[in-house]
């Protein structure tokens, strides 16, 4: 498969994976730690959405499904499917060290492993998912906090997880 097309499709898949898993496990609902609350209130002060701000703050403050997807891609590149499961185990340890229950991170890395395994039959390689995940995190955290938080707030309302 052409690399550029593969990276674009992998970025979309990664974005959907981590946003759906994180929203379902309640990242926009409340900040897990104090740093996430400060980030969320700061985003709201600049005209963003408070639920999206909590989402962004929680992603920064502990490894959730975003980090899980990235680490699972790296583990799959190195060690295959067992690498993805080892990634879930490590993400769980990291979550507990960051005062987070860790449901979103482990489920996110396991679903990412399954997605990469299914897509590998269509010619996708794990490198495409690593690059795609970096691009997907960039759209949430890097380009425009305000508009990204408003979009995340709308998704949170659809899942009934708004703050």
């Amino acid at each position: 498969m052409n690399e550029v097309i593969g990276i674009i499709i992998a970025a979309i898949l990664c974005w959907l994976n981590f946003v759906i898993v994180d929203t379902y496990f309640g990242l926009p609902e409340q900040p897990g730690v104090k740093g996430a609350r400060i980030i969320g209130e700061n985003v709201e002060k600049r005209g963003g959405d408070i639920a999206g701000g909590f989402f962004q703050g929680n992603i920064v403050c502990s490894p959730d499904a975003s980090a899980g997807t990235l680490i699972a891609s790296i583990g799959y590149l190195l060690l295959g499917i067992p690498g993805g499961i080892i990634a879930a185990f490590f993400v769980f340890i990291g979550n507990r060290l960051c005062a987070d229950p860790g449901y979103a991170g482990t489920v996110g890395s396991l679903t990412a492993t399954i997605i990469i395994f299914i897509c590998s039959f269509a010619g996708f390689t794990p490198e495409m998912f690593i690059v795609g995940m970096v691009i997907a995190i960039l759209t949430i955290q890097g380009i425009d906090h305000k508009r990204a938080s408003i979009l995340l707030g709308k998704i949170a309302e659809k899942f009934n997880r708004h703050a």
Partner: peptide, 16 residues
Amino acid sequence: TIFFASYGNVYGLSNI
């Protein structure tokens, strides 16, 4: 290394 590790296989670099 990366090519063989990632070519649609389930085992990667590990020698299971």
